[in-house]
Design a protein around this nucleic acid. Structure first.
Length: 267
DNA sequence: ATGTCAAATGGTATTTGA
């Protein structure tokens, strides 16, 4: 088994988490429990499914986190939490994208992004073309920021390779594994990013999502669709990275687990 | 078409999205 446990340490590590919570309203208690017990430094949240008004800014502040949210209500919605503050928050790509799917901020030396890539729905659905175009916009954003310390986390809704998929045959003809989606994700990485989990653990599935149906989590029927990407110069500061499977267990879990990375802090 | 979950609604079941 490759289940990795978080390590207790007092060394100056920065912990960054990406987690698709599948409704912050439904998941708030789980998120609070996570923040309280694990005390991550930065949390990148996807699928808040909340309006700006409903986002519990004050409650997060009382837990020690500055927060920024880009919400649209019923669907989508992305947020960033930071124990050490943030500045220069940017919502969306600055275009006419009607869906709230990306937010970024300056956190310390990083520009961090919380990304929720469109699902695509089906290969012949207009949402699939939107997904590919959206990934291209994200790639262009990364190209624009070349040279900065970048950290992108989120639900990318693409399994990079068959290793990232419990039964590739079952997914044939579906979204998340198609050639154009994978090419778009590789194109994003080609802009100068490193897939930290895969680089550190070349042979482990490291699934981050399991369907609620059919006991998929128990059976190991997952996909790796959540990622943490950093610029290649920053990748050397990675201490460890793991999927926190505890976040997928217990009472009312999201269908995604949290992906956790720890970085050596620059001094 | 799914051993499910979440949001929204002329709602107490259905639709939509994932």
């Amino acid at each position: 088994m490759t289940e990795l446990a978080p390590t207790e340490t007092t060394s100056p590590l920065t912990t960054v988490v990406t987690w698709n919570v599948n409704s912050l309203g439904a998941r708030f208690e789980r998120v609070v429990e996570y923040l309280t017990t694990r005390q991550p430094d930065v949390v990148l949240i996807q699928e808040t499914k909340q309006s700006e008004e409903k986002f519990l800014t004050r409650e997060f502040a009382e837990l020690g986190y500055e927060s920024a949210h880009y919400g649209q209500g019923q669907w989508n919605g992305v947020a960033i939490l930071s124990r050490d503050g943030m500045s220069d928050v940017q919502r969306g790509f600055g275009d006419d994208d009607p869906e709230a799917r990306v937010i970024s901020a300056r956190v310390g030396e990083w520009r961090v992004y919380s990304c929720y890539v469109p699902n695509g729905r089906a290969l012949d659905n207009p949402h699939y073309a939107y997904k590919l175009a959206w990934l291209e916009k994200l790639r262009e954003e990364v190209v624009r920021r070349r040279g900065e310390r970048l950290l992108l986390g989120g639900d990318f809704n693409v399994a990079r390779s068959d290793l990232d998929c419990w039964d590739p045959g079952q997914w044939e003809g579906s979204t998340h594994v198609s050639g154009p989606e994978r090419a778009a994700l590789e194109g994003l990485l080609g802009a100068g990013l490193v897939d930290l989990a895969r680089e550190r653990h070349p042979d482990d599935p490291l699934y981050t999502w399991w369907d609620y149906r059919q006991g998929s989590f128990r059976r190991g029927w997952g996909l790796r669709i959540d990622y943490l990407f950093v610029d290649s110069a920053s990748a050397t500061s990675l201490s460890e990275i793991f999927v926190d499977r505890e976040t997928r267990k217990g009472e009312r879990p999201s269908d995604h687990a949290a992906l956790v990375a720890r970085f050596f802090t620059a001094s």
